[in-house]
Simulated assay, not measured.
Amino acid sequence: MKKTDVMKSLAATRPASLKPADDPERLDRIIAAATARPSTEVGGTDAPERVPARRRRLLSPGRSLLGLAAAAAAVAVIVPATSSDRTISVAPRPSTSVSVTGEPTARQILLAAAVAVEKAPASGDYWRTATVDRWMLTDPTRSYVLEGGRSKEVWLAKRPDLRSWRVWQDLGVKPATPQDEAAWRDAGAPTSWRYPKDMRTENLFSVPSKPLETAAGERTGEQLHWKMVGELAGKPLTWEEASAIPSDPEPLRTYLEERIGKLDLTGSGMDVEEAKAHILLRNCVDIISTLPASPETRASAYRILASLPGIRAEGEMTDPLGRRGETLAYQEEIEPGVFAQVQLVVDPGAGQLLAEVRTNTTKLENGRRAELRLSTSFQAIGWTDERPELPVKKD
């Protein structure tokens, strides 16, 4: 397994794009939703928490959640440095079963989301995911920070007479903050940036293989020809395999652990049990956000997450697109002693993962410490009978 580049430091605060929101009645709503059905899920009051002794010590989430990352990598200008073969560990900060501050716990939020997602449509002509990725990167001289983005839609056709599509658009690049804009103007206000192949970025991305541009790109569509619809535990899934994923919590966890157990996790530089735990957590997030799974399977993935330690609630926030949701956070250990903060923004009432945000910092050439963020915001996840709006072909 490959290691990622070492993050030199991390931001201890929430990303600036996430703003607190206030709703004193949300705890009652979340608790009511979470208790709408008997708590027999994994780790519920009627079932013991299935976390081995060594696993209780550290959790390890895996690759970045970028929405069908394998498919996106084929067209991305900037490729995330994280991957499914990366091992990360999470310092455990278990959530309590009772909220003493009147705030919902991570467990309550996840169980409420599980109840809600069971009501989602169970079939359709397409499995659709629509995302907006935003990222921060230093310029090639490390004098200031740039912020860019990409919108992406993936339409996976379930019917054999339909076609699968990926549609994307680069949203352009600009200085990340007013301070960065001032430095950018001092540098002559360039409109494109070309990166040396051997540049070390010290953040969540590898070096861009193509020049970055301030102007937004054209909306582009590509027909998908392969039968694979995603992956779990580093292995691709076909439609048939995805439909066979268990829908109940215990069988789902057993299925995932057996699949993970077939991987060669030696050589990661970390404990094998930690590596297994990291893949389990990330696979649950993938099932919730990316894979064409049934509502029951996605609900079970939420319930498995609710049984895991290391995830804490941080209150109600707005995500990078301005939507309100409950924030769940944990720390990723990229390498021993080197951490980054991860936040999941969840709408428990809809059972939807709204966004995932990763934060760290870097040191610029002038000595300034700058915050870097990587976020994926999910605009649509699930089954639909709608048709993709494809870009108009030019003559």
Rank of each mutant, 00 (worst) to 15 (best):
R150L: 04
W193C: 04
T177S: 05
P190T: 00
G149Q: 09
Q223Y: 04
S206Y: 08
R185H: 14
K197P: 03
P140C: 05
L137K: 01
G217A: 04
G172Y: 03
S243D: 01
Q179W: 02
L237I: 04
K197E: 10
G172I: 03
T254R: 12
A215L: 09
D161V: 05
T214H: 07
T141P: 03
G188F: 00
D198I: 03
S151H: 07
F205Y: 03
S143Q: 15
P196S: 06
P160A: 09
K174M: 10
R253F: 08
G234T: 03
P211C: 01
R194A: 12
E213T: 13
Y144P: 02
M228G: 06
L224N: 09
P208Y: 07
S206M: 12
E240N: 14
K197S: 07
T191M: 12
P175R: 03
A157T: 12
D139T: 06
E181S: 00
L137C: 06
R142I: 11
E250Q: 14
P178I: 06
T220M: 10
T254V: 13
D139H: 07
R185Y: 09
S192D: 13
R200Q: 10
T238Y: 08
L212N: 01
L212F: 10
A187Q: 00
L252C: 00
V229D: 11
T214C: 09
R142V: 12
T138S: 15
S192V: 09
G148A: 05
V145D: 01
R134I: 04
P178V: 07
E202D: 13
P246H: 05
S209P: 02
G217Q: 08
G188A: 00
A244G: 04
A157E: 10
Q179P: 02
D170G: 12
V207I: 10
A216L: 08
T254K: 11
G217V: 08
W239T: 12
T201Q: 15
G217W: 08
R194Q: 04
P236S: 02
L224Q: 14
Y195R: 00
E202Q: 09
Q223P: 07
V145I: 15
E250N: 11
E218G: 10
D180V: 00
R142S: 15
S209L: 14
Q179V: 04
L224W: 10
E222G: 14
A183W: 05
E240Q: 15
T220K: 11
G230P: 07
S243A: 05
A176N: 08
S243V: 02
G188N: 04
R194W: 01
W168S: 15
H225S: 10
K210C: 05
G148Q: 13
D198T: 07
S206R: 14
G188K: 01
P190D: 01
R253Y: 09
E222L: 14
D139E: 06
R253K: 14
M136A: 11
E241F: 00
A215R: 13
R194P: 03
S164I: 11
S164R: 10
L156K: 01
T138Q: 14
S192N: 03
A157S: 00
P211I: 01
T138M: 12
Q223E: 15
A176S: 13
E213L: 11
T220L: 07
E231D: 15
L171Y: 05
E147N: 06
P190Y: 05
L146H: 13
A176C: 05
D186R: 04
G172T: 04
P175N: 08
R185S: 13
T138A: 15
L232V: 13
